[in-house]
Design a protein around this nucleic acid. Sequence first.
RNA 1: UCCUUGGUAGCUCAGCCGGUUAGAGCAUCUGACUGUUAAUCAGAGGGUCGUUGGUUCGAGCCCAACCCGAGGAGCCA
Length: 478
Amino acid sequence: MGALHRKRIADWLLTAPTNQDIEVSGWVRTKRGNKEIAFIALSDGSTINNLQIVAELAKFDEELMKKIQTGASIRATGKLVASQGVGQTVEMVAESIVLLGEADADTYPLQKKKHTLEFLREIAHLRPRTNTFGAILRIRHSLAFAIHKYFNDHHFYYIHAPIITGSDAEGAGEMFRVSTLDPANPPRNEDGSVDYTQDFFGKESNLTVSGQLEGELAAMALSRVYTFGPTFRAENSNTARHLAEFWMIEPEMAFFELDDNMDLAEDFLKYLIRYAMEHHADDLAFLEKRLLDEENLLPKENRNPLPLLEKLKFVTENPFERITYTEAISILEKSGKKFEFPVKWGIDLQSEHERYLVEKHFKKPVILTNYPKGIKAFYMKQDDDGQTVRAMDVLFPGIGEIIGGSQREENYEKLNTRIQEMGIHAESLWWYLETRKFGTVPHSGFGLGFERLVLFVTGMGNIRDVIPFPRTPKNLEF
RNA sequence: UCCUUGGUAGCUCAGCCGGUUAGAGCAUCUGACUGUUAAUCAGAGGGUCGUUGGUUCGAGCCCAACCCGAGGAGCCA
């Protein structure tokens, strides 16, 4: 049988042990035993669980068995039998073992013990081999797959927004410049500034900070679209919730108003969490136990009130709380709590305010809507009161803002006026404004930070641990 | 970027008021053990104390700058 259809360890662990001959390949997690017999725990990454390979030492070369240690790669053939031990139901009695690659125990950094996440970040090239990262990467994959499945099932079209953009007016954050000019000696204008007309694109270009504007263009033809791609922010953000390169999901829907947008956001998030729970019960159980072990070291008041799986279940089974910004301010003012940043209508809500609402007051996800226009982006639809816009932020416990979205301003005059008011360079957005000139319609959309979703589902504490190779300030080793 | 805090063996950490040869657990290696579950038991090896400079008779410990990590904040997804 070719490799494509070969069974994986995940498959064999679910197979009835009828002494059939099987072959498996993978990496050694641990080897235990005495001078008669060795027990090799083998992983091929297909599941959090290992296949136990039983090797009677008399049948194998002594030098070979010495080299089979943590991290080595092997191919083994033998019979799949019911296990005599208690830790597993099936195991393989090895008949032949081929050492594919050694892992010298003196220099192989991964030991058969717990490592800190900080240490594993320094060996990001090897950390996928740990149980924790295996679980995270499998869940991350399934969430990405579920995103496409959800949208496909709901008749959304996947749009590929460009990664290099000439638009600098989105205001979503600092951008990474893209240039082929010689940085040591760029062509210059008479006033000494760099002459970007001689650059590759003939103008300044950057990595995208959002696919939203392009998404809107597509939604003006296909009605329901989404983007799902990498996004870049050159902010010097050093937190457990920010990356310089992250993946963002941005649906954009014609004929959707703010309530429809909220309905979608809530249904979408619940679907994704449910999907992970259904397909990754054992990975999530492992992560939950890992989390509990870690939290037992913390003082009681800092511990999470709910174990991971209960927390996820709670989110899928309860409606999100929907309140306006104005109502939120009123709740905060009446809370009697002293905040570091005083609460007043018109301020942007700080982390402490959001945390109070989500974690103390409502104790569940909250959708905040109708923010003051002064603190939100130019493209959001203005409410009739002239004070607020139809924005919505979905706030999750422990994560903060997981989704930011809005109904878009579809009125050309209002949008143009707002652009002028905010001092944005309108000429560079001429193509965007034309959507409001030609066949404009009410429409809405939002952005979901993919890593923040993975962070929530896996229960991890640092966003650098839910992406294989994190890009953060001063960090580009791998 | 700001505040707080940390950097000592491969990993996780201890190291008293600045004073002789730098400590532990785990990992590694060697040995023991007839089915182990991060196996267990015994022994051994393993250190430029983040970097640079300074104070001092003497610095892991004090001072300065820088680098890197963590927690919090800002910015946001």
